[in-house]
């Protein structure tokens, strides 16, 4: 007993929590409050917040429910990264502090702030509705409950991991597109859309896909991978996003939307030259009229700053193109084969 009590003391230190505060009723702008409390090794950030709320400042506000990493309520930014407070150990955060011994706690980004660490989840729910994030059963309602669908292990495995999502909105908070465009579908909703689209029991695939390729949809993602890096359930969200894109190209063709055309332009450049011909990329993606209307001012600025990409004739092929083309062809064949077997 004495030994463990000693270990107890060794694993204890003072930690400061720098907590984002804003009560819209009284504050005109946000500020930070510092709370320094004794923390034992093994304590989660959520338990530390509970301690602060109960012993120092009852007005610190955050959502909390299951405390076990399954309900998704306590998503917040801890030392700048969006995660669940209930599964984050204070000890693990200490080496990540910008100022030694001070853990910064902020609300999730990209969702409207309500108070302190609480953000409004309604926009996310709205998007789930807009993109029909439910299985539209291929079984008519009166038939339901009579027999089960037969689902193979392989079919099940396509959506198994995606159903781990607890809608904690960490990915939403980290998404670099959402920072610029709040109307963007968002990673969580793309993941859920994908999960529905690969479910053999669903019958809404085409309708959902048609919506996903519109503006603010799947083609707006810039592959920054922040969603996947931050996912508290380690779900490969980017695989879902790529999955939707590949599916869209396969089902709807390459001329369908700007996004598809953009992808195609990339592919043909790489195939021909091994590098991008950037100067003509906007024309090929969005057409001449759109480009002239939307990008001309920027083009002028770029010319003035001498930051224009080289004109197409000056873009020389990369070295070793011959061998590269062979490998490229092999790769594309490979991917096509994969798709065929996957979609059978």
């Amino acid at each position: 007993m004495t030994v463990s009590s000693e270990q107890h003391i060794e694993g204890k230190r003072d930690v400061t929590f720098r907590v984002f505060r804003l009560n819209p009723q009284v504050d005109s702008k946000p500020y930070f409050d510092d709370y320094t409390i004794p923390v034992e090794r093994g304590i989660t950030v959520l338990r530390a917040l509970n301690y602060i709320k109960e012993n120092i400042d009852a007005s610190v506000s955050y959502r909390v429910f299951c405390q076990a990493g399954i309900c998704g309520s306590c998503g917040m930014r801890i030392n700048g990264i969006s995660k669940l407070a209930c599964t984050t150990q204070v000890w693990d955060e200490l080496p990540k502090c910008r100022e030694a011994g001070i853990i910064k706690i902020e609300p999730l980004r990209n969702l409207p702030l309500l108070k302190d660490l609480i953000v409004d989840m309604d926009p996310l729910v709205g998007k789930m509705k807009h993109y029909r994030n439910w299985v539209e059963s291929s079984m008519p309602e009166p038939e339901m409950g009579k027999k089960e669908f037969l689902v193979s292990e392989e079919e099940f495995s396509r959506y198994d991991k995606a159903t781990d999502c607890i809608l904690c909105a960490s990915c939403v908070s980290e998404c670099s597109i959402l920072r610029a465009n709040k109307e963007y579908v968002s990673p969580a909703v793309l993941l859920k859309s994908y999960r529905m689209n690969v479910d053999t029991r669903d019958s809404l695939h085409d309708v959902r896909l048609a919506e996903l390729v519109q503006d603010h949809g799947v083609w707006d993602c810039t592959h920054c991978y922040r969603c996947q890096e931050t996912c508290v359930k380690n779900i490969p969200i980017m695989e879902a996003i790529h999955g939707i894109r590949e599916d869209a190209i396969e089902c709807r063709g390459l001329k369908d939307t700007a996004g598809a055309k953009h992808a195609e332009a990339f592919m043909s450049d790489i195939e021909k030259k091994g590098k991008l011909v950037e100067a003509t990329l906007p024309f090929r993606t969005n057409g001449v009229a759109w480009t002239v209307k939307n990008l001309l001012p920027m083009a002028v600025k770029m010319i003035l700053k001498r930051r224009t990409p080289p004109p197409p004739p000056l873009v020389k092929s990369s070295k070793g193109m011959k061998q590269f083309r062979e490998e490229f062809r092999e790769m594309t064949e490979h991917v096509k084969d994969d798709h065929k077997t996957h979609n059978k």
């Binding site: 299985v135 079984m139 027999k147 089960e148 669908f149 292990e153 959506y159």
Partner: peptide
């Protein structure tokens, strides 16, 4: 049994046996 099948029909991802049943 009815309610479990109904959930399956609505999209609950039940784990499966080799014969594809729940």
């Amino acid at each position: 049994p009815k309610i479990i099948r109904e959930l399956d029909n609505m999209g609950t991802p039940w784990s499966r046996l080799d014969d594809k049943t729940i």
